[in-house]
Simulated assay, not measured.
Amino acid sequence: MKESVLNFTCEGEALVGILAEPEGAPADVGVLIIVGGPQYRAGSHRQFTLLARHLASNGFAALRFDYRGMGDSAGETRDFLAVDADITAAVDALLASQTQLKRVVLWGLCDAASATLLYLERQPDPRVVGLALANPWVRSTASLARTHVKHYYGKRLLQAEFWLKLLRGGVGLDALKSLMRTVKASRGPAADTRGFQQRMAAGWRRTRLPILLMLSGDDYTAKEFLGHASESQDWAGLLSENRVSRIDFPGADHTFSEAMQLERLTTVTHRWLQDIAPSP
């Protein structure tokens, strides 16, 4: 594979990306790696660099880029709710970079996965033929509280050590107050029906595209997503659709930082891509 800098513009601002491409002819599907924030195109522990290189070495051109205001790209900093134009410009640039490319898969982690669904909810893009989503972000005060109650406090309250410590005065008043606040917050509404979580579900439902859903076993963001999807009517049935390939990564953290987990992530992505468009 080989890498090169790909410069392009978005609404008059200069954006910078790194294009990884096979030495030979690529598959007609390219991969746009959308970076969650706030970080730049290399990703945590060079996650996106290694992913792009692996895909290019196996026949799939991949572009990772910086949003406006991040990394080496110009413009004002923005969050995942305001990057539609950046994604459009990156898709344009990737397809224009190689004439063999006809279609694009969007790959995103955390709020980049959320941005992907919001992008397609607002403006369906016929050039996009698949979504690879890792640990999507659906954070709200209530959903975070429910996740902590279920996956942290729930286990803690079942431990004899906790109750012995409580009886001996080893659990401070502040800790008890924190628990009560969390329980109270967890009883709030599942999500603001006008919020981005509902729009994410609408984007998922609207696309009808194949979706690769990758979930870390040791990550509150992934647990929060599963909890929200199981409780919200907007998400009812979406994760069990036949077009969804769900892959769980037991023991993996949010960014798949262990080498074995990252290697599995890249391999899973590559094999799923082959089902969409086998490389030459």
Rank of each mutant, 00 (worst) to 15 (best):
K150R: 11
G154F: 02
L144N: 05
P38V: 05
A134W: 01
L167R: 13
L95H: 09
N135F: 05
A236L: 07
H228K: 03
L176T: 10
L94P: 01
D28M: 10
D218L: 10
T182S: 12
E11F: 07
A277W: 05
R187A: 14
A175I: 00
K177T: 10
G75L: 10
R68C: 13
R168W: 08
V128D: 00
G203D: 03
R194V: 00
L19Q: 04
S140W: 04
R53G: 15
T269Y: 09
D174M: 04
A93G: 11
L32C: 09
V128G: 02
S57P: 00
W163H: 12
T99K: 09
W235V: 02
A61K: 05
K102V: 03
L164H: 14
G69H: 13
H45I: 09
L117A: 11
Q98L: 11
F256K: 02
G217S: 00
E121N: 13
A132V: 13
T9N: 13
A20C: 15
Y119G: 03
E161T: 14
G71P: 05
A89V: 04
R246W: 09
D218T: 06
R156E: 14
P280R: 12
E263T: 05
N242I: 08
Q233L: 11
K150N: 12
L51S: 09
P189F: 07
L32A: 03
Y220A: 11
D275R: 15
R205W: 06
G17N: 11
Q123A: 15
D192P: 08
D234C: 01
T9D: 14
A25P: 08
A277N: 08
D86L: 01
S114G: 01
D92G: 12
W204V: 02
R122P: 07
G195D: 11
H228C: 13
W163Q: 00
I18E: 10
S140D: 02
T141W: 02
N135M: 04
A25M: 05
K165P: 01
A74S: 13
T116S: 15
Y67W: 13
L262W: 02
E161M: 10
A202D: 14
Y220M: 15
H45Q: 07
G188N: 13
W107A: 06
H151Y: 15
E13N: 15
T9Q: 15
A89N: 06
P278F: 07
A190C: 10
E258F: 09
L215N: 02
S245D: 01
